[in-house]
Amino acid sequence: MRQDHLVTSKQLSRADVEAVLDRAAEIDADPGAVADRHAGSLLGLLFFEPSTRTKMSFEAAIKRLGGDTVDMGAVDASSVTKGESLADTVRVAAGYADALVLRHPRQGAATMAGEFVNVPLINAGDGAGHHPSQTLLDLYTIQENAGLDDLTIGIMGDLKYGRTVHSLSYALTNFEADQHFISPESLQLPREVVYDLHLEGATVREHEGYEAILPSLDVLYVTRIQRERFPDENEYQQVAGEYRIDADALEAAEDDLTVMHPLPRVDEIAPDVDDTDHAAYFEQAHNGVPVRMALLDMLLGDGDE
């Protein structure tokens, strides 16, 4: 496999992360300086699952670098199973574009796709697997607000199916980060993920409620608990209710606690948190553009200058 695919956050060393975040900070400070840097470059968008946000963010990033996109368009689920193989689709797309962004419902899809193409490929989500560009923008946001070392972070919500959570927790093992995982028992981290975190020397601390740990956190990363994870509405309402935060609940936190969320949120963060100094989730969403610009700039290289 090419070394310049970005498939999982596990492949990122501390130096890799720092290189992307440094470049993102440079770009964020002066976006005009790179406005034509990749004029003529085409980014291929292969989204086998809808994701307006991630897709828009990549589109904005390549266009702000002077490039453009070629988009496979919307795919409905049935044609994914009946249509041509993913291996064929990515090989064809690699002939049209200078780099590819892939989102696919199956785990390992990006790993496999990367074996078939000779342009850089970015995994933008493979089922319950990985979403490393989200991780990089999360890390950038944490760095800007709290710093990545000497960090105490609580990650809360659906930790079982939440790929952003898995990717983030792997990447944080590169830093001096104390990670706390807060979820109902049925939505704890998959054992595979715990295995990997242990392998990286991380301590996995799991909690069923946030109250006890909240006062010691620098960052609280909230994710959505989805209705479909529960057999009935009542149980969902009851469980999900225990993982909602509002301005009142945050009274117990340090003044400089940073609250993050990959968005979209439903009601797990009350709107009254938006007006507090804790809220960093809109800034986090904005950071997707400079971070993806940095990533694309590094993957596309200097070929256009």
Binding site: S85, A87, Q107, G108, M112, E115
Partner: peptide, 30 residues
């Protein structure tokens, strides 16, 4: 069943051998 190797793709399964099991080289399942 959500792993790309179980779809109809031209891919050969690959497993890393761990001390106490094996792990899919694509989806990471142990």
């Amino acid at each position: 069943s959500g792993c790309i190797t179980t779809a109809d793709e031209p891919v050969t399964s690959r497993f890393e051998v761990l001390k106490d099991g094996v792990r899919c080289g694509y989806c990471g399942t142990i």
